[in-house]
Design a protein around this nucleic acid. Structure first.
Lengths: 104, 104
DNA sequence: CACGACGCCTCGCATCGCTATGTATAGTGT
DNA sequence: ACACTATACATAGCGATGCGAGGCGTCGTG
């Protein structure tokens, strides 16, 4: 799978993961791996910038927590983030149907 | 729909269109629009470079033809192109299932 | 005490869709 | 004649973003 395939679809997936409950970066990477059945095993250099991007857009908010001596930045979905997630889910369906129409 | 969403998926779709029969650039754009139900209305600056890319990779071959006074570069699928199309269809299914697993 | 897992970060690269621009022919309308 | 649209090709430069590589620090285990 070419890496570019993910382009434009990652943000929505991160929103979906965080929508399931507050999560930190490292855990989000694990969730993406698990929920995609191992297909998305993403580098930290991919996910952390994406999280910062989403926070800068106001779709996520973050706060520091400490768990067993380690500091974590925990992300939560904002109201705008929840709205954006809905849009992105619908856009995915449109996109997906369109690709299948062509590829079929 | 963000433009980046297409990244990494266009080449396979072009191969699929040309697999249906020899086609030229302008016609391929029209086919993509039609087969995607209007979702993919791509700029020439998107498709022509992609065609050159695919030819450089040996997945398409081209030849000039003249139809009603206009010159067209007509593309055909090579054997390697046909193989690649199969791979990309299968990769799309993997990718698509993975995204749905996360987004669901 | 080394090593792997956990946990965060950022710089720079590569890819590639898209905008803008240029060229040229055919057909249609005024 | 003139303008405009559709057809048909091409490329330069921009922007977005996934990723590799590198760096920092904590914790538990053999």
């Amino acid at each position: 799978m070419k890496p570019e395939a993910l382009k434009g679809h990652l943000d929505g997936m991160i929103l979906a993961v965080v929508a399931a409950g507050p999560a930190h970066g490292y855990g989000i990477i694990a969730s993406l791996r698990r929920r995609s059945d191992g297909v998305f095993d993403l580098a930290e250099g991919t996910v952390y910038p994406a999280l910062h991007r989403l926070e800068a857009e106001g779709l996520l908010s973050s706060s520091w927590e400490t768990a067993s001596g380690r500091k974590r930045r925990v992300y939560r979905l904002t109201r705008r983030g929840r709205g954006s997630l809905g849009e992105r889910r619908s856009e995915w369906r449109t996109f997906s149907r369109a690709v299948e129409g062509v590829l079929a």
